[in-house]
Design a protein around this nucleic acid. Structure first.
Length: 373
DNA sequence: TAATCGTGGGT
DNA sequence: TACCCAAGATT
């Protein structure tokens, strides 16, 4: 890591802020510095690209214009507003934090970053972003852009996923950040990181701060930031079940923790579980899974179902750490059945419209709808 | 500390 | 294709 003298720090601040003043992106959450606006945008932007967030942000502000509106919102409406954005605990934490602000802080935002981090879903980055952008406090906001930009500017070789590395960056940025315009400084770093100093194809030849970019000068830009490789998603085989009756399609409520917590999904049976249930290592014939599933539903839930494969029977969905390979089976419930042992209920067309579904379920819903055409 | 938690886009 | 990346937080 190299260090900058005071004169270079001031030159960098001026170059960066001059560039930002003439080139900052016109984004809906930059119309003012309202902490509510800053907060909602920062949560939505976690691990999510700007162009994805913009329509969600606009709709969200239309539905929940204030902290109080969010605190009092119906959870179903909240999840519908977040539907498709992913990382759904963010939405649930938003409402928790809104209620904290109303109840614990008498509807007055805390300005201290330590206090901000007591709010649900607000960690070190988001606390820094709110404190600097909304309250003009000279604190760093170390996100992926800041890691990338400053690791290149100063050739910082520490591996960025380590918690102690964040402290190193916070210390470095605290010395460089503009005391007069900390919010603009942090946002300028983000704009820089998403334009000239990108991860894959940086354009430092034309960057306003190329003279400050030691890694570029040394021709080693792509070595930064130093980051560990992530493991590939683990593949899991499921049977996804389309069970119809006159009342609609049978849906299952997922547990209140883990992936897609609390969402309604088509019943999913892991192939591994079905094999274990039937005492086999593998289904010798595809059709063996159908009879195994029939036996499984009879024993587990007391339901008599004759399963068959759907015409298009494979759907895949990739999450960050899992890859679901789903085989679609269908069955009809023609007689009255006792559903008391099954963790779910039938969904009408209206239910499908009103509830929020994760993307993987929308894929399945689309497949089912295409069957009826 | 390392794993978990979604989705869309780029190469 | 397979992999990486995108304004991270939580456990």
């Amino acid at each position: 890591m190299i260090e900058w003298p005071e004169s270079k720090i001031h030159a960098f601040q001026k170059t960066l802020l001059d560039w930002y003043d003439h080139n900052k992106r016109d984004l809906p959450w930059r119309r003012d510095h309202d902490p509510y606006h800053v907060w909602i945008s920062e949560i939505m932007l976690q691990q999510t690209q700007v162009h994805t967030v913009i329509p969600y942000y606009e709709r969200f502000m239309g539905e929940f214009p204030s902290v109080a509106d969010l605190a009092n919102a119906d959870e179903g409406r909240l999840m519908k507003a977040w539907e498709g954005l992913g990382y759904y605990s963010r939405a649930r934490n938003l409402q928790k934090a809104a209620r904290q602000i109303v109840q614990d802080y008498d509807n007055v935002w805390p300005r201290d970053i330590a206090e901000l981090q007591k709010l649900a879903g607000i960690g070190p980055y988001t606390a820094g972003a709110i404190a600097s952008i909304a309250f003009n406090q000279p604190v760093p906001a170390v996100d992926g852009n800041a890691f990338r930009v400053f690791s290149r500017l100063l050739e910082i070789d520490d591996e960025i996923s380590k918690p102690q590395t964040r402290k190193i960056f916070e210390q470095v940025i605290s010395k460089i950040i503009s005391q007069e315009r900390p919010g603009d400084f942090n946002q300028a770093i983000m704009d820089l990181g998403s334009s000239y100093m990108t991860a894959a194809n940086p354009d430092s030849d034309h960057s306003p701060v190329k003279a400050f970019n030691q890694a570029y000068i040394d021709g080693v830009e792509l070595n930064y930031p130093v980051k560990n490789k992530k493991p590939r998603p683990i593949e899991v085989d499921y049977f996804a079940l389309v069970i119809r009756s006159s009342a609609g399609i049978l849906m299952e409520k997922r547990p209140d923790s883990g992936i897609l917590a609390d969402f309604w999904t088509f019943p999913l049976v892991a192939k591994e579980d079905l094999l274990a249930f039937s005492g086999q290592d593998e289904f010798a014939e595809d059709e063996d899974a159908l009879t195994a599933m029939t036996d499984y539903f009879a024993q587990q839930y007391g339901l008599t179902l004759a399963f068959q494969f759907l015409p298009v029977k494979k759907v895949t969905h990739i999450f960050t750490h899992r890859k679901w390979l789903m085989t679609l089976l269908s069955a009809d419930l023609t007689t009255e059945n006792d559903l008391s042992l099954f963790p779910g209920r039938f969904f009408s067309k209206e239910d499908f419209i009103q509830h929020a579904f994760p993307k993987v379920q929308q894929k399945l819903i689309d497949r089912v709808n295409s069957l009826d055409e």
